[in-house]
Amino acid sequence: MRKILSLSWVIFKEISREKIFYGLLFLGTFFLLSSVILQEMVVGEKFKVFKDIGLLSPSITGVLFITVVGANIISKEINAKTLYVILSKPISKNGYILSNFFALILLSTTIIFLITLFGWLFLLINGENWLSGFVTGAYFLFFELLLLSSISIFLSTFLSPYLSMITLFIIYISGHSLSNAIQLSQFAKNPPLQYFLKALSYIFPNLELFNFKINLVYNLPFPKIAFLYSPLYSIVYSLIFISLSFIVFSKREL
């Protein structure tokens, strides 16, 4: 286990030095700052736009990060043939998958932390301390990204980086839209479509379980059990996808 963790640390340090990491941090911060313009154009509750964007920004940045970096994280080492160096060390294929997974989680946590921190500070400067909202948002976002990381690792064990990127993005979109689309399909009066969407929703992860932005922004109550249920949901999914990655990666001829 120590070997796995130390390898994760190495991967973490390596990627955190890459341009894409800073680029995304910059993008997230820029997005936060842009809320000043939108706030001017909207009437209503005073800090609503700051809160909306403060919650949206880490989520977008985190997802982009996992899509781009997660898709490359394994294939890059295969292409650069550095993988052989690592695997010739006493570390198993499974251990290698795990260390990549942990590194990805560590990196996305860093991104969530930093951008949420910026968002909180930004709102604080503007005159409201909304720590509870940001912390809750970050809490759920962490588990959403945990789930996405595991899927990303799984996809990158057998797909090319571009294909894996696109697939992950589709999963992300459908994960947020399916529950809504099912409700809408009732208006369409098209039973095959409804069954198809229902069937999809049984397999695809429902990412709306991690999305309480509306509730946080408007201070609407949501069931407290979500604090336990959503993480559990995420962990179960991750276990499945990581196990699947073990199987696929072990079968892969390098």
């Binding site: 009437v43 609503k48 736009v49």
Partner: peptide, 15 residues
């Protein structure tokens, strides 16, 4: 549905 779970933000834009 298209807002991918960010209706509040989309609402700001439309407002």
């Amino acid at each position: 549905t298209l807002s991918m779970g960010n209706p509040s933000f989309l609402g700001d834009l439309i407002m």
